[in-house]
Design a binder for these strands. Structure first.
Length: 410
DNA sequence: TCTGGGGTCCTAGGACCC
DNA sequence: TCTGGGGTCCTAGGACCC
């Protein structure tokens, strides 16, 4: 019998903040920024959810819904990951097959473990598995102090959906053979892979539940959503995938040198859109510097660099170029500047709302020593060394501070 | 729904090679 | 010189997830 568990840490960032400041316990808390400020809600406690606040909601809207006593926190980078790692260590005591899907979400394979503890009468092992997972959830709370919910089923997707049903601080198990009954009444949006776009299209066809999607689609709609319908039907018949593929590298416990990550990107949205070309170029320099540094830190170089630009009308243009692998700002910036000319030719005139730089097609540095032959490289090596010790913001390149892109690397 | 920031994955067309 | 098909890489855009 296949048994997959999806374990989700409840309101993760809020829960960690509460561990660090117990006076927040029981208080309405929003992590994401100050009241009325820019940005969106990253995480929020159940006390504010009761008032309609949701993660992803703009801070402005959340500020209106949240009660006056709500505590707003900006969120502190880097303090959360160690707690996720402690949780992982607990999970690995229960089963060797643990995969992080994000900072606060794990998949575990319990297949076969029920045989170790099964008692008479528990034919499919479900009761044993459920007892084990309840125990695991309590251990996480006792040892790390974080509340978690767990969904259990025969496939990853069923386990994932069940974990939503288990919240807060519960366990929900879907027995083998019960998948159809579990899934049919759910709104289509609950199914992973059906986002706001697909949901709207389905609703326009009068399809609101998963049952309606698979059983009441017109031939045209069936064709349109064919892929999704096929996946949903497989899950309903208990034929969903329980395969544990490659773990997403970004969430691996260790990020060893040379480990291939899919891409490295940084972007910035301006709340007052930029209409000054020079200021856009300044931002591109800053972002290029940042992604190159992140790549070097991981011992990676990129063959592809992409530039994304969004104007105030929300039109987004993206251009990319592929060439020899590099992680050096000077080489990268030359490519970024030529991409910028291409983008500008497409989206001219309107003020700029967002710019971003992404590196992809990443290749291992081959353990090459970075030999600082030239003056430029010696400066770069020194900058990297300081950042390695003190963090990225400890150093800024002179030209960024002076707003002079063309002289950045002289 | 008036929209951050970091990612992944999919599709589709074109270039190029064999 | 023309024709074909398959494989692979690159590019652009979009949907989705946390």
């Amino acid at each position: 019998m296949r048994w997959v568990c999806c374990l989700d840490l409840d309101t993760f960032f809020v829960s960690v903040e509460r561990l660090l400041d117990p006076s927040l316990e029981g208080q309405p808390v929003i992590v994401g920024g100050r009241r009325g400020g820019p940005g969106v809600v990253t995480a929020c406690s159940y006390e504010v959810r009761a008032h309609g606040v949701r993660s992803g909601m703009s801070m402005r809207e959340a500020s209106q819904l949240a009660p006056v006593e709500t505590v707003f926190l900006s969120g502190r980078h880097g303090i959360y990951a160690p707690y996720a790692q402690k949780v992982r260590a607990v999970l690995e005591r229960y089963t060797p097959v643990v995969q992080a899907a994000s900072i606060d979400e794990f998949y575990l394979d319990f297949t076969g473990t029920e045989r170790l503890y099964r008692r008479p009468g528990d034919h499919d092992g479900a009761a044993t598995i459920e007892r084990t997972i309840r125990h695991m959830r309590e251990t996480i709370f006792d040892e790390v102090g974080l509340p978690a919910s767990a969904g259990v089923g025969g496939s990853r997707i069923v386990a994932k959906i069940a974990s939503g049903r288990a919240k807060p601080a519960g366990v929900h198990l879907v027995r083998h053979g019960a998948e159809g009954a579990f899934l049919r009444p759910l709104p289509v949006r609950k199914f992973p892979g059906i986002g706001p776009r697909a949901e709207a299209q389905m609703q326009a066809e009068g399809l609101f539940t998963l049952h309606e999607l698979v059983a009441e689609s017109t031939p045209l709609a069936r064709e349109r959503f064919a892929r999704t319908i096929a996946v949903v039907e497989r899950e309903m018949h208990g034929q969903g995938s329980a395969r544990f593929g490659r773990e997403r590298p970004a969430f691996r416990e260790h990020d060893p040198v040379g480990q291939r990550v899919g891409s490295i990107s940084n972007e910035r949205t301006f709340f007052a859109a930029l209409d000054d070309e020079q200021r856009v170029l300044d931002q591109l320099l800053g972002l290029t510097e940042r992604v190159c540094w992140r790549a070097r830190k991981r011992g990676l170089r990129a063959r592809t660099v992409s530039l994304k630009l969004r104007t105030t009308d929300f039109h987004t243009v993206q251009r990319s170029s592929t060439g020899p692998a590099t992680a050096e700002e000077k080489e990268m910036l030359a490519r970024v500047q030529s991409l910028y000319r291409k983008v500008r030719a497409r989206a001219a005139g309107l003020p700029v709302r967002l710019v971003g730089i992404a590196l992809s097609n990443l290749v291992d540095d081959g353990g090459q020593l970075f030999l600082p032959f030239t003056q430029t490289k010696r400066v770069a090596a020194a900058v990297d060394a300081i950042r390695g010790k003190c963090g990225y913001d400890a150093v800024r390149l002179g030209a960024v501070a002076k707003k002079d892109v063309t002289r950045a690397f002289e």
